[in-house]
């Protein structure tokens, strides 16, 4: 039996205001870089918080490397970096690293310090005085210092300037190349994930809309352009028409009469997100 990095069965999370996630079935494979895509409020953060054990599901279950989150903290092989990069504000960077060391038996001090040094963050600086980019680098160093097999990053690039984004992604990818760890990262900016992710989980309205290997998904879909008189193919995700012309994104192979292209990741994701929104409305 394959062990997945994350594996959800009938997963649901109900808040006072309604369902944050509902009936979610998905598997994210190990050794891959998975993108968690969806608009704000789609349930991306909820999903990650369920995996860490910060939240307990209302229905169903989620397993991390085959184990449900227990009472003894987050799975030892799982690291989580929340969107607002929570750290102890009054601590210095060096003290934050010490906190990482005492809170984690699997801590790799040398490695965490190396990541901080590479980021050029002064160790005696108070966490509260760091820039967004530095804060992210420190939080990432502490997350990776646990030597996780799976790392969950919730909107890691939000609020970062382009240089800091590039730095963070390069650090992260280099560590993946070294350790072969599994990465799950969420974003509502799909362009950030193109070329980085090889697996996709698309959420909208608390439900899974699309999942799978990115290349397979791209190969299975076509952007079709043709006369609006033509018969629509099967598996239409989204169709837009002008007076004469129709542009269709469909889960299909080549269709006679239509000009067919493989979609880009962004085109594909946007089509699913727009169609989910149209259904909801």
């Amino acid at each position: 039996m394959t062990t997945y990095a994350l594996d959800a069965t009938a997963l649901g999370m109900r808040y006072r205001r309604g369902w944050g996630l509902r009936d979610c079935e998905f598997q994210l494979p190990t050794g891959r870089i998975s993108a968690l895509i969806g608009p704000n409020g789609a349930g991306k953060s909820t999903l990650m918080r369920l995996a860490t054990g910060l939240l307990r599901p209302t229905t169903g279950s989620i397993r991390v490397l085959g184990e449900e989150p227990g009472r003894h903290g987050t799975h030892r092989k799982l690291a989580f970096l929340a969107q607002d990069k929570p750290l102890y504000r009054g601590f210095t960077v060096a003290e934050m690293l010490r906190a990482g060391a005492v809170l984690n038996p699997s801590w790799d001090d040398e490695y965490a310090w190396r990541l901080v040094r590479e980021a050029d963050v002064p160790p005696q600086a108070k966490v509260g005085t760091l820039s967004g980019g530095q804060r992210t680098r420190v939080a990432l160093a502490i997350a990776l210092g646990r030597r996780p097999e799976v790392v969950l990053l919730d909107e890691p690039l939000a609020d970062l300037d382009p240089l800091a984004r590039e730095d963070v992604m390069r650090t992260l990818m280099a560590e993946v190349a070294d350790s072969g760890m599994t990465v799950v990262l969420s974003s509502h900016v799909i362009a950030d994930l193109d070329g980085v992710c090889d697996h996709l989980l698309l959420l909208a309205g608390g439900r899974v809309r699309l999942q799978g290997d990115v290349e397979d998904l791209l190969a299975q879909h076509r952007v079709l352009i043709g006369s609006r008189e033509l018969v629509m193919p099967d598996g239409v995700v989204e169709a837009r028409t002008t007076e004469r012309q129709a542009t269709v994104i469909a889960r299909t192979g080549p269709v006679p009469g239509w000009e067919a292209d493989e979609p880009s990741l962004e085109e594909l994701a946007m089509a699913y997100l727009r169609s989910a929104r149209a259904v909801a409305a």
Partner: peptide
């Protein structure tokens, strides 16, 4: 190496 490539380009090492 894959690590050198991704450290320079921030792409997925699996792609390399």
């Amino acid at each position: 190496t894959a690590k050198q490539v991704v450290a320079a380009t921030a792409i997925n090492p699996n792609t390399v």
